[in-house]
């Protein structure tokens, strides 16, 4: 297997310490080495104080969101050789407070969901399939959104105004509007029908580009807007 030395230019920051700076580490990589594995190798062999978030290592948990060469990515599924650069720049996500190194505080991400005032985040969805195994009502699966924050990091509007609800929360809102499952979606539509809601989006579609999990928040924001436009026109012309 081919092996090569790759330089990783990593964002470093410790609370109460020196100003943030980049530190470069040289790591031996092979074809299977992902950026996350390389970072773990750095922690093991070169600097035990380097910290990052990670858990599942296969793009299912959404913890290892970071910026790799400027793009929002999950470190666990980006192979170093696929980047085709001899230096890989690794930085924490944007639009979030950085706790240390590559670790951001996910609090604001969840705060936005909670400001809806109704259950917004779905854990699982039911699948429509005729032949279901005995003893089960329907097959079910976990929702696509893995709450990785990459869309929030990529969004240019989020970068100027944290009061924007942001792509992740809006996408979750659309899931409820699309499939209310007994919930009244009206208050939710009212919630997103605001200056900080779905109208705030400027259609830069960075969220779609960044989404690693097939949620495509940009499309869902547009779907919310279509729904609201219809509603407004209906109201304008007396339903």
């Amino acid at each position: 297997m081919v092996e090569r030395d790759i330089d990783f230019k990593v964002f470093r920051y410790k609370q109460g310490g020196a100003a943030p700076a980049y530190q470069t580490f040289r790591v031996r990589c092979d074809e299977n080495t992902t950026v996350l594995v390389a970072l773990q190798d750095i922690r093991r062999d070169q600097d035990g104080t380097l910290i990052m978030r990670h858990s599942c290592h296969h793009a299912s948990c959404g913890t290892c969101g970071m910026r790799i060469n400027g793009r929002e990515e999950l470190g666990c599924v980006v192979k170093v050789f696929d980047l085709n650069t001899s230096t890989v720049v690794v930085e924490p996500m944007r639009n979030m407070p950085v706790i240390s190194d590559l670790v951001v505080d996910m609090g604001p991400f969840y705060d936005r969901f909670n400001s809806a005032g109704m259950p917004l985040m779905r854990e699982s969805e039911f699948l429509d399939e005729a032949d279901v195994a005995e003893g089960l009502e329907a097959y079910m699966r976990c929702e696509n959104c893995i709450e990785c924050n990459l869309c929030v990091s990529a969004c240019p509007i989020m970068g100027t105004d944290p009061t924007y609800l942001g792509p992740a929360a809006l996408a979750a809102a659309w899931r409820v509007v699309e499939e209310p499952r007994g919930l009244d979606a009206k208050p939710l539509l009212d919630w997103v029908d605001s200056q900080n809601g779905c109208w705030r989006c400027h259609v830069a579609y960075e969220c779609n580009e960044a989404c690693p999990s097939g949620v495509f928040p940009g499309d869902k924001i547009m779907s919310l807007r279509r729904e609201l436009t219809k509603r407004k026109f209906r109201r304008l012309f007396g339903r």
Binding site: I51, M52, R53, H54, S55, C56, H57, T63, V103
Partner: peptide
Amino acid sequence: RGELTSGTTGRHHG
């Protein structure tokens, strides 16, 4: 020492 569930827990096949 790292993120919660960053050892074996998050990484099994589920």
